[in-house]
Design a protein around this nucleic acid. Sequence first.
DNA 1: GCATTAGTGCACTGTTGGGTAGAGTAGATG
DNA 2: CATCTACTCTACCCAACAGTGCACTAATGC
Lengths: 207, 207
Amino acid sequence: MAREEDPRIARSRALILDAAIEAFHEFGYDGVSVEIVAERAGVAKRTVYNIYGDKEALFRAALGRSIATAEQFASLLTEAIEELEDVRLELPRLAERLAEAVVLGPVLPLRRLLVGELARFPDLVAQYRERAPDTVLRALAGAFERLAERGLLEVRSPTLAAEHFAFLVMGADMDRGMFGTRIEPPARVRAHAREGARVFLAAYARR
Amino acid sequence: MAREEDPRIARSRALILDAAIEAFHEFGYDGVSVEIVAERAGVAKRTVYNIYGDKEALFRAALGRSIATAEQFASLLTEAIEELEDVRLELPRLAERLAEAVVLGPVLPLRRLLVGELARFPDLVAQYRERAPDTVLRALAGAFERLAERGLLEVRSPTLAAEHFAFLVMGADMDRGMFGTRIEPPARVRAHAREGARVFLAAYARR
DNA sequence: GCATTAGTGCACTGTTGGGTAGAGTAGATG
DNA sequence: CATCTACTCTACCCAACAGTGCACTAATGC
């Protein structure tokens, strides 16, 4: 029972998954044939079916990995959020990191794909939201509540404050990124993030 | 040359277009067959081809109409924006109208569809952005600049202020709406909009 | 080295869907 | 009323693609 997996399977599985992620992100579920994935993976079509069963399972495996990647980004952010102390000093940098992770990282293509397949795979969309953006928003809300109790911020609703922060910081760039493949210049994204943090503080910091 | 169009054509064209809009919004480009559209329109498949030529043209016609609808919403908003005078009094109501139009109106389904077909129809996406959200953002930026000159607001970059306003007011609800078909309760959307406007004023209004 | 197991190539099935053909019908126009 | 012209129905072609079967080869691991 404790047998190692045949390295041939592991190798094929990995090759196929990488090819599938890339292809699905680029062309969507319907835009990709299993044969194309096999070709890109350098593997026979039959092998794809042997390992993943059918196209839907392959898609779910690919998205599972993409979502896990997004989740990792999210958990790095939540760590940083939970360590927030001096809000005036640290918030701009945190904003930059948030915007970088979402707008410049691999998150945007995933979000585009999920929106496109919402009708077919609503459960995957729900899973993504729970595992990535919602954890970040919860962490932000927790941090803001804590900082409000310390008298550093003036917060009516921590949840709402978290949303305001996130969308001030990267709302516009995220939206542009959803509706265009043209990448926003990183320096601009960071500048927008800092400006967003500044505005957030202007509204929420105790005078 | 100045001949009236045969009413049979006009009728069929309208029936088909309505059915196409509904179907494409629900299932996306690949999810809809021309035969289904014909069926829903109560028309023969052949008639669809006679009038619209091919599936892509049908899709473009349907989206053209959806985009025009969004554009109308946008131009109602720009009118209201250009009449802005007393910002403290009028901004919350404007925020409500903006959020209603985008989150509760027919805009969200269009946005979902556009994101899903971005790879296939980038020109339509660009057209939508130009005709709907960008005009609103430009109007907001213009209004904020004007109000800043009158000393009512403190604005570094009118463009950025416009984005901050828009995303404070409806960023979170718009995002939720993109990733789920479950409709947000209208009262909540309006409340979020007012809160967003309040935060915007807290950051941008001259003390 | 030898049995096992995975991978390959290729031909094949079945289905879906875009698009067409053509003959017949019904409604518009004059 | 007569003539167009659009609409309908059924049947069809063709391409793409999900998924399978099978005989053959090659890597694995004992």
